[in-house]
Amino acid sequence: MTAPALAEVQAELAALDDPQTRAANERRGDTHGVNLAQLRALAKRVKTNHELALELWATDDTAARLLAILICRPKAFTAAQLDAMMREEPTPKGHDWLVNYVVKKSPHAEALRLAWLDDPDPLVVSAAWALNAERVAKRPESLEPDELPVMLATIEAEMQGAPDKVQWEMNTSLAMIGINHPAYRARAIDIGERLEVLKDYPTPPNCTSPFAPIWIGEMVRRQTAK
């Protein structure tokens, strides 16, 4: 089977674009009108194709970039490419997918995390904190002995006044520390209770609040109930 060309895939994306979906996405800051289930189905048909992914990314179209993320080979990107991509993609969905589906799987993730923590761009900093949360929860062996206390001190000092996206990822890191590292649980809960970040965040029924003390308490309860 011949690999699809860029124009062919763009035509399929255009056919999937729905005005109602676009309007709903635009209210959340996303600039595409493609249902994500349909986008994933298209990616499954196209299969991994890194060269096509690069072409799709270069179009600057949000739906095309989301598809590019799904069909690329994360380990094939250089650190410089990933750094440029992070700065080029401002939409919430594109940013989140790029971090979670590509950067986290890259051999350059740690170098980028360190480089991004002090970046002037809040979206780039938020990516660094997303990588922090990943390490805290899934790769504790990568943490330095004093890293969690330092991270908690930074969160305590900066989270309340941080830009929204950075604040969200700092809060996630705070919750991951409390959930996964019992020695720091009480301090994580105390920081969350004093700062009250996301305390009043609207949470649907049967979902866990992102307010760190509640989030930590619920996840620890589930762990002990197993």
Rank of each mutant, 00 (worst) to 15 (best):
Leu70Thr: 02
Leu82Val: 05
His108Pro: 04
Ala111Tyr: 08
Arg73Ile: 02
Glu89Cys: 01
Asp83Phe: 01
Gln81Pro: 11
Ser106Arg: 09
Leu117His: 08
Leu117Tyr: 04
Asp119Trp: 02
Asp83Glu: 11
Pro92Tyr: 04
Leu70His: 02
Pro90Val: 07
Trp116Leu: 04
Leu98Met: 10
Ala84Gly: 04
Trp97His: 14
Glu88Ser: 08
Phe77Ala: 11
Ile69Trp: 10
Val102Cys: 01
Asp83Ser: 10
Ile71Val: 08
Ala76Gln: 07
Val102Pro: 08
Val99Met: 08
Ser106His: 09
Asp119Thr: 05
Asn100Phe: 14
Gln81Glu: 15
Ala79Glu: 13
Arg113Leu: 09
Lys75Gly: 14
Asp121Leu: 11
Glu89Lys: 02
Pro107Arg: 12
Pro92Val: 02
Tyr101Asn: 12
Gln81Leu: 09
Ala109Tyr: 08
Leu123Ala: 14
Ile71Glu: 00
Thr91Ala: 08
Pro92Cys: 07
Pro107Trp: 12
Ala115Ile: 07
Leu123Asp: 15
Lys93Trp: 12
Asp119Gly: 03
Val102Ala: 06
Lys93Asp: 15
Leu98Tyr: 00
Met85Glu: 05
Leu98Ile: 09
Ile69Phe: 07
Pro92Thr: 00
Lys93Glu: 14
Cys72Gln: 02
Val103Ala: 01
Tyr101Val: 09
Ile69Glu: 07
Leu98Gly: 04
Tyr101Glu: 13
Trp116Asn: 02
Ala84Met: 05
Pro90Ile: 01
Pro122Met: 02
Leu114Arg: 12
Pro92Arg: 06
Met86Thr: 09
Lys105Phe: 15
Gly94Leu: 01
Trp116Gln: 08
Asp83Leu: 06
Glu110Ile: 14
Lys93Asn: 14
